[in-house]
Design a protein around this nucleic acid. Structure first.
Lengths: 261, 261
DNA sequence: GACAGGTGGG
DNA sequence: CCCACCTGTC
């Protein structure tokens, strides 16, 4: 069972490239972020034609998340992160697929720091912690997956000193990420590659991809029930080099679902 | 000697297609309209690489005209239509190439009628008449070429009755066009094909090209000195069918320059 | 640097 | 319907 995440930065601008990648990577479950399309402009027809079912949470111009599944039923359980009914940003969608809870998230960027946007990021993280603590308590097989907009460690950024006061690298959000891990959420890519420099995002500016000036923002975290099933994983780095690419690139893992405890 | 006019509707958006057409049509002189680029964003490098010299009169966002010549010296003589120093729109450029005066023009559209824009069109035409009368008086070999935004006759529009109060077809501007002809300017395409329905523009909307709902707006007028040299001419209609085409299509004539009187 | 979306123009 | 250009976002 292959599960992937991809911040597409505009689902309609990215559609040909997304379909190309779906064909070559053939993931079973895909979480998308930054659709940048209102609910009615999600390209369902083309996604269906590629062999995927989909649920999504659209928004005009910004944000927007989706979950795709190949030959599998998707049961939507949440289409916003509980805890603030006044939060209208489409950054969260949760579903059950193949007996797993899939939490697809697009965590706020939070820049500039300090400021209201950073505060919003912190409060969003608090709500995420409440939700994810519940999932742990209930001992559910669950996955937190998506664009966390958090650089977890110095190894995850090409030049840590430049990022000290960036909302992606601030101590507060890195602490929160560590907190998730303490509660039992396993960072699959870092677990598979404990010492490698691995990036999932390269800025469009300043030829960041050519210089490999990247950062690691897109994560797949497994609940204790699922972490023993982790078999392999990786970053489809080459997709970032494609013509008309997103500034992020897909990240994936493979779970051995037969090895249920 | 092949001389052509093409309203490109955005020189930079149209560049690949323009280069394609230059290669296949190989005109000696080309007049372009609606560059929609400021002076410094004219793609001179690519035009040069295609084998053409160029002069142009750019403007941010709108208008803009250029004259291209292959293996020929271009001597610019005017970069605006005389008669109104307060007119800042880039709609006219005049040059001498191969002993001919080339007047490349992008006449104002004039819609809506009635109104200030239509008045501007009429006053622009007055200035054009003054300039072109001078050229006739001086018995110069000259060409008026470009997007006139004038539908000369009922035969030049797919449905004349729909256009009665459109600035492109108003009696005032059609009269002015006839006046030019009376002064000696010869409409080369209409002379070559006296009875054919010939269009040079099809609207992007309502599949106008598929329905052949076109109009004839782009003209090549020859002064009495040059009209005897007219050999052939045509409209490169197929270019309008290309992917990412302008709403206009190129018009061209061939002059026999050896037959000077 | 690239996205969406709005504008003014045709 | 498509152009350029502006803004806001990341």
């Amino acid at each position: 069972m292959k599960i992937a995440t991809y911040n597409v930065n505009g689902i309609n601008a990215r559609l040909p490239l997304l379909l190309q990648w779906l064909k070559e990577a053939s993931p079973d479950i895909v979480c998308l972020q930054e659709l940048k399309a209102p609910q009615e402009r999600f390209p369902l027809k083309e996604i269906n034609a590629a062999g995927y079912q989909a649920i999504w949470n659209g928004q005009k111009s910004w944000n927007g998340v989706a979950i795709l599944a190949k030959n599998r039923e998707i049961t939507e359980v949440q289409r916003s992160l509980p805890g603030d009914p006044e939060d209208l940003q489409s950054r969260y969608i949760e579903a059950i697929i193949d007996q797993m809870v899939i939490c697809c998230l697009y965590l706020p960027n939070g820049n500039p720091y300090p400021g209201a946007k950073f505060d919003y990021k912190l409060s969003w993280i608090k709500r995420l912690q409440r939700r994810t603590n519940q999932l742990i308590k209930m001992e559910l097989p669950a996955i937190l997956i998506g664009d966390f907009n958090i650089i977890p460690e110095p190894i995850d950024v090409y030049k840590p000193e430049r990022w000290e006061n960036d909302a992606l690298y601030r101590i507060e959000v890195r602490k929160a990420y560590k907190e998730l891990q303490k509660k039992g959420w396993m960072d699959s890519i870092r677990t598979l590659y404990p010492e490698e420099k691995i990036y999932t995002f390269w800025d469009y500016l300043y030829k960041a991809y050519d210089r490999n000036a990247g950062i690691r923002l897109d994560h797949i975290l497994l609940s204790p029930f699922l972490s023993p099933q982790l078999q392999s994983g990786g970053v489809d780095r080459h997709v970032r080099g494609w013509e008309k690419s997103s500034d992020h690139t897909p990240v994936w893992i493979i779970l051995d679902r037969s090895s249920k405890p």
